[in-house]
Simulated scan of single mutants.
Amino acid sequence: MTVHGCTGPQVDLDGIRLIGRTVSEVDAEVIQYIEDRDLGWLIYGDGGPGPEELNMYVRATRAGDTVASGARFFAQDWEDHG
């Protein structure tokens, strides 16, 4: 499931607001979250980081000439082909 960065709904990860923010800020907070908890992390299909165990990652959503953070959630064995 993909949560669009401009239309939401708002989703958070232990207090980290994931949707509609500057992508680099969300990336940094998610990476810090992962490192603080000694979790594994991956860079997924379209370049977004995410905790390996939670099956989610941060995405960039075009918003005119800028981008906003979105998120993708998926089943454990799912592969992103597009």
Rank of each mutant, 00 (worst) to 15 (best):
T22V: 10
Q32W: 02
F74S: 09
Q32N: 08
G20Q: 04
L18I: 06
F73C: 04
E79Y: 13
I31T: 14
P49A: 07
D36M: 04
R59K: 09
T61W: 01
D14P: 00
V3F: 04
V58P: 04
Y33C: 13
G15Y: 10
H4Y: 03
I16D: 12
T7F: 04
C6E: 14
I43C: 10
Y44N: 10
I43L: 14
W41F: 15
Y44I: 10
L42R: 11
T61I: 04
Y33L: 11
D27F: 13
R17C: 06
D12Y: 03
V67A: 12
L39S: 07
W78M: 07
H4W: 08
G70T: 01
C6W: 00
V67C: 13
I34K: 06
C6Y: 02
D12M: 00
E79T: 12
D77F: 09
V67K: 05
G48Q: 07
D27E: 15
A75S: 15
M56S: 07
A63F: 13
R21K: 15
L13S: 05
L54S: 10
Q32M: 04
I31L: 15
L54R: 12
E29M: 15
D14I: 03
R62K: 10
A63M: 03
V30S: 15
R72M: 14
V3G: 06
G20E: 10
Y33F: 15
R21D: 09
R72I: 08
D46V: 02
G70H: 01
E79N: 07
D80W: 13
E52I: 03
E29D: 12
L18V: 11
V67L: 03
T66H: 11
E53K: 13
L39G: 06
L18N: 11
H4S: 14
L54P: 04
E53Y: 05
N55Y: 14
R37G: 02
T22Y: 04
T61M: 01
G64R: 06
A28K: 15
I34E: 04
G45K: 02
F74Q: 01
G5T: 01
E35S: 14
M56Y: 10
G15V: 12
I34T: 14
L54G: 09
A63P: 01
R17H: 09
V67I: 07
L13W: 09
W78G: 03
E25W: 05
